[in-house]
Design a protein around this nucleic acid. Structure first.
Lengths: 117, 117
DNA sequence: CAAGTCCGTCAGTAGTTGCTAACGTTAGCG
DNA sequence: CGCTAACGTTAGCAACTACTGACGGACTTG
């Protein structure tokens, strides 16, 4: 059993095409497990396992109604992943911006840009 | 051999913690393959394979300098993934917004909640 | 209670992946 | 040409994963 943080879990869940398809399915409507499974050609068991992964990743919410279990996409989970990716990429995006600006103001160099060896 | 679209490839690449670590490493600086490998405790071969995956996913750029190969994060690839995720989640986010507003304006249903802009 | 419905969980399997070690390739130096 | 440095590539292995089939729990109806 390996440890996984929230970002890793969400990314891992989204890396599977079938799970993304499930997520699309419940993005606009609340669907029961059976209804989701009916939309695919794999077994109900497989879908149930995928749903569990999505639920653990915080990308899905579960609501019970009698013997049925209704699922819907959880926008908060998606927002959290986006924020995590943004933070992760902040450095890269900032560096790219800096490179562009450094290239634009090459003749105006009173200070070093740090491009040394 | 299975087909993979750009989103799937990027998501698959990011699902691996080591690859995200590599991406962080080259987010602010251009590094050689050996320098990247030196930052981890796995073999140089493993890093090379991870870098290939990131490169194929469009998340990394390669520049050759003699026998060395320098890598840097490619912000465009990251932006493309973000756009893809945004599009995928548009439905869910829109639904969530609609639910909130429907709950807020239950007595005041005069106009439709358009998804303008 | 019993029967039926809806659904998650438990083994078991085929396919995928991240890793290491050995080898092949390209560039620079004498 | 030989030699070394820096890398990518291939083959093979252990671990993981997406899948199926069998089973059991929770709920409703009679």
């Amino acid at each position: 059993m390996i440890e996984r943080d929230a970002t890793d879990e969400a990314l891992h869940a989204l890396a599977e095409p079938r799970r993304r398809a499930i997520l699309r399915l419940v993005a606009h409507d609340e669907l029961a497990a059976g209804e989701i499974a009916a939309a695919f050609e794999v077994s109900r068991t497989a879908i149930s396992q995928h749903v569990t992964v999505l639920k653990n990743a915080g990308l899905l919410t579960e609501r019970r109604d009698g013997t049925r279990r209704l699922y819907r996409a959880r926008p908060e989970g998606l927002a959290e992943l986006r924020a995590s990716l943004d933070e992760m990429w902040a450095d890269a995006l900032d560096t790219a911006r800096r490179l562009v600006e450094a290239d634009r103001g090459l003749r105006d160099t009173t200070e070093e840009v740090g491009r040394a060896g």
